[in-house]
């Protein structure tokens, strides 16, 4: 199994060009304003009921932790609603992508933090997965 060749394209000079900077500025401005986006560079908003999972203090990508308070607020920031409670409710209101809440999301590629998820989508850099994860495919689970 190849590991080195499977790396996503490195951040290059093109990422510092004026076009990239302009796209980044527009994305940051709009998504931070509307969704309190944290610019992880690998956006899965549509899969999480339009509630940005990176706002979760534990950076969870696959649903709420077990510490959600009985009133639906976050255990770490008790005066704020749990972003995953919002994600679940938001996903129920979406006409599409509802089942995405049940999909297993890949680990975060922390190198992309602060880059434009729009550009990473076009360059497919956001499709990168560790080779072992990719080899595991869709299904593993259960005891039989």
């Amino acid at each position: 199994m190849e590991t080195n060749l499977d790396r996503s394209p490195p951040i290059t000079a093109a990422d510092r060009g004026s076009f990239t900077k302009a796209v980044l500025a527009v994305e940051k401005l709009t998504k931070e304003k509307i969704w309190d986006c944290r610019m992880c560079g690998q956006c899965i908003l549509h899969s999480t009921g339009m509630s940005c999972p990176m706002r979760c203090p534990k950076n969870l990508r696959n649903g709420p932790c077990g510490g959600v308070l009985q009133n639906g607020n976050c255990e770490v920031l008790p005066d704020r609603p749990c972003v995953w409670v919002q994600a679940w409710e938001g996903s129920r209101r979406l006409p599409v992508w509802r089942r995405h809440m049940e999909h297993l999301m890949a680990p975060v590629d922390w190198r992309l933090q602060g880059t434009s998820s729009w550009i990473n989508f076009w360059t497919r850099r956001d499709k990168h997965m560790p080779a072992g994860w990719k080899a595991a495919g869709e299904r593993i689970g259960g005891h039989r």
């Binding site: 297993l104 680990p107 994860w133």
Partner: peptide, 28 residues
């Protein structure tokens, strides 16, 4: 706090180690 992975990533990673005999990176 670290939270590099979430608990589901961790679960899958244990199964990758066990069943595929590789690290998450693919290294044997």
């Amino acid at each position: 706090p670290i939270y590099d992975l979430d608990s589901l990533h961790l679960l899958r990673m244990v199964r990758i180690l066990r069943d595929q005999g590789t690290y998450l990176s693919g290294r044997k």
